[in-house]
């Protein structure tokens, strides 16, 4: 019953999943541009943000329309609510990736210590792992995996702190602007992962109907 409605929910879910994959790519591309000092790649990341914004807005509009016309309840209502919430977070994650790409543009003219690039790359890889797990948990309604996201997020926070310690070793005053851009990039990555953890909590709500604190 309600085949059209069910199909709409399926389509919306698939679209959010698709946006999640695009944002994951965007995040990875922004880190790569930063590590390689590739300004063109950074510009490409910045340019891709408009499309993400439009798609996320599309989710909100479509979800509102379905809520207004179909009066969804129970798991259908939880799905629509969670999709809207996820779209909002994904849009934030894309913005943070843009911020990383902007850091690329500020730092590309100068080459800092390799250790710091390695740290950023390592952090980027961990964030990628969190985003993959988030989208998998969403796709499979995997409660256990959704609840594991917080654990996966932990080493990212550690790397962020380690990044600070490494910065403390810098001597040259000329490094300050470069260093602050890099530390911000590390902070953005940490925030992207936090957004993914929030999505994980919403996936748990979707499955169980219970809000986690």
């Amino acid at each position: 019953m309600r085949e059209g409605f069910r199909q709409e929910l399926k389509d919306l879910k698939a679209e959010v999943h698709g946006i999640g994959l695009s944002v994951t790519d965007m995040m990875s591309a922004s880190v790569k541009s930063l590590v390689e000092g590739d300004v063109d790649a950074a510009d490409a990341v910045i340019a891709s943000d408009d499309a993400i914004d439009r798609r996320c807005l599309g989710i909100e509009e479509h979800a509102l329309e379905v809520i207004a016309t179909q009066s969804p309840v129970a798991r259908d209502l939880r799905l629509l609510y969670s999709l809207t919430y996820m779209a909002w977070h994904l849009e934030r994650m894309a913005d943070l990736s843009v911020n990383i790409a902007k850091a690329t543009k500020r730092t590309a003219s100068r080459r800092g210590p390799q250790t710091l690039y390695d740290l950023i790359q390592a952090q980027g890889n961990l964030v990628h792992r969190v985003l993959d797990a988030t989208m998998e948990a969403f796709e499979k309604r995997d409660l256990e995996l959704a609840r594991k996201l917080e654990d996966l997020d932990e080493p990212i926070d550690h790397l962020y702190k380690q990044f600070f310690r490494e910065l403390g070793r810098l001597q040259d005053e000329d490094d300050i602007e470069w260093a602050s851009s890099m530390v911000l990039a590390s902070r953005y990555l940490e925030r992207i992962a936090d957004n993914a953890v929030d999505i994980g909590e919403r996936i748990a709500f979707l499955v169980t109907g219970e809000m986690m604190a």
Partner: peptide, 18 residues
Amino acid sequence: IFTSPQDRRTEDYITGRF
């Protein structure tokens, strides 16, 4: 009942699955 019913039959009924 309308956000998180505990019984699958309630869920199926109120979401229009039967």
